[in-house]
Simulated scan of single mutants.
Amino acid sequence: MRSREIQVRTGSQERVHDITDECVDFARECGGDGLLHVFVPHATAGIAIIELRSGSDEDLLAALGDLLPADDRWRHAHGSRGHGRSHVMPAFIPPYASVPVLGGRLALGAWQSVALVDLNVDNPNRRVHLSFLSN
């Protein structure tokens, strides 16, 4: 198994951050057939396979805002207002995703991207582990 860690700066706003290019580069370097596993080792972030730059990223943040409002209802209450929802989000958008790799290329659909989803405005720096398991 080959692995790499990438650093992502999400800043101080809720964000859907495209990490597809980093995943594509890593899969190409690994070559061959296998499985790319993407994992974010944070309790308040997730990995999504989603169409980006068509409004879907904003729609996802809006849907999460409706489902998990940034208000004072959360028992986990340290940090910024509504911080507890960031700890609930990974139950809906898990902290991992796996993508088949064929001939060193991600087998994503035409409009699919790999994205880090981060609602936690208190932690602007994220680590993402990429692992390639070859056949």
Rank of each mutant, 00 (worst) to 15 (best):
F39K: 11
H129M: 13
G46K: 00
T20R: 10
H129W: 15
A110L: 10
A97Y: 11
E5K: 13
L35K: 06
V16P: 02
E5R: 13
R126G: 05
M89C: 03
A115L: 08
H78F: 15
F132C: 00
T20H: 08
L36M: 11
G109H: 14
N123T: 12
L130K: 11
D59T: 02
A97W: 13
G84F: 03
A43P: 01
V121W: 01
P95V: 05
L108S: 00
Q7E: 15
E22C: 03
L64I: 03
V16R: 03
L52S: 10
D118C: 08
N125M: 06
G82S: 03
H42T: 04
G55V: 02
R9S: 05
V88G: 08
I93F: 02
Y96M: 13
A110N: 07
G65H: 04
G84P: 06
A91L: 10
E58S: 12
L68H: 01
E29H: 11
W111S: 04
R9C: 14
F26N: 00
A77V: 13
F132H: 06
R15A: 08
A70Q: 15
M89H: 08
N123D: 13
V24I: 02
R75D: 08
R105M: 13
G65L: 09
S80N: 15
L36V: 06
I93S: 02
F39M: 09
G79Q: 01
N135Y: 07
N135I: 02
D33H: 07
G104D: 04
H83E: 02
H87C: 00
Q13D: 12
P90C: 00
L36E: 05
S131L: 04
S134C: 09
L108A: 06
L68F: 11
G79T: 04
